[in-house]
Design a protein around this nucleic acid. Structure first.
Lengths: 210, 210
DNA sequence: ACCTCTTTGTGAAATAATGCGCAATCTAAG
DNA sequence: CTTAGATTGCGCATTATTTCACAAAGAGGT
């Protein structure tokens, strides 16, 4: 929903986090929170929280705070999460299987609607409730499914080709788990999750007690 | 290795990426690259690459460029990746299994040396080459293993407790895959990988063709 | 030895993100 | 109806990061 306002990427990234905090609060039957509450409960910065929201309008009431339900609803809407988003998964290995079986996706309105692989031994097999399909079929399959988000869960060596296939199947947003850079047309958005990168950053912060 | 110099976090995050690019270049038998080469080949910004390196000394030769082997070696060393880092895995579900079986970890010198769970049905079972151990044993097990990095791959509801157990077992750096905020002592570093957050950001960028 | 071409490393400028401080707003109580 | 107390939204100062642009350095040819 890239409309008029120019929202900083860090803000966008935090919005999704806020959502998980709100779910938590609802479980605890908290109906109203102030930004200061959120800071002490969930470690987020109160001023930053208010600033983040301010890009999207007014959410709270001075003197009172925020209504948790309303916050959740409005931020879900901002992030296009009110209705279920279909997602294509490419790569039915260990990681693909873990993603396809990852429950929290459903609770946030993402649904993996098809899984693809290029390995003939896997094609036709079940992955949870999905039948693994031939990657060569992706274009025709997605003509029907009309998913706009794709997940790359293949080895690095196959990532670029997978990205191109996703794009040709009309996917516009890609979540890439392969530890490699992929080139894509400028109208496609890519987010990269790299376990190695995260571990490497942690490794940097190891105390040197050798 | 948080020494004197103050390195920006974005720089640190990019360093790990650079490493994967260097591996690629080596496969292609590229011995020398300029920062401009890297920009055209791997989409990284040439000026940013040079600036990133500049926090750690001089790496290249004017008029020539960088020696790929040397770059790789020095950045590995900066990130403490010259010697294998032991990692504890908590959570032997789908995600834990995928991580334990994720080969690229080994090539970057990370080794998962133990897997823990609290589910009696899983304890004692094999997870690839590891035997799943009781989370209650984590302190005594890590007295021997001396791992300093831990991975949380448990459901959100168990993440906080898991974090505390890791800390009590002397882990100082945590990679958290649970979609929830965890409170930890200030001497512990946490990195958070949140699939939902990444998908939510992508979702924001969906064209609204509804 | 000298000139040309290339490319680094890095100050300094430009841009981006964060955090402060407070006027404006709302509630509740007297 | 007024006052006290709480808390938002937001302009602006501060801090962080990226990008620019160029002097210095090295290679290669003549």
């Amino acid at each position: 929903m890239p409309n008029g306002i120019k929202v900083p990427m860090p803000t966008l990234e935090r919005l999704a986090n806020y959502l998980t905090i709100f779910s938590d609060l609802k479980i605890r039957n908290v109906e109203t929170v102030s930004s200061a509450d959120l800071e002490s409960r969930a470690g987020i910065n109160a001023a930053q929280f208010r600033k983040d929201l301010s890009y999207f309008g007014e959410f709270g009431r001075p003197g009172i705070g925020y209504n948790v339900n309303e916050l959740q609803a409005r931020i879900s809407r901002i992030l296009n999460l009110q209705k279920t988003q279909s997602v294509l998964l490419v790569g039915a290995g260990n990681l693909g299987a873990a993603l396809a079986g990852y429950h929290p996706l459903r609770t946030e309105n993402f649904q993996i609607v098809a899984a693809f692989d290029n390995n003939p031994n896997k094609i036709g097999k079940q992955l949870w409730d999905l039948t693994i399909q031939d990657i060569d079929e992706i274009i025709s399959v997605n003509k029907v499914l009309q998913a706009r988000i794709g997940i790359i869960a293949v080895p690095a060596s196959a990532a670029q080709e997978t990205a191109e296939r996703l794009v040709s199947a009309n996917v516009v947003n890609i979540l890439n788990f392969a530890p490699t850079f992929i080139r894509i047309p400028s109208n496609v958005t890519v987010r990269h999750i790299d376990f190695l990168q995260e571990l490497a950053v942690l490794s940097y912060y190891l105390p040197e007690d050798d």
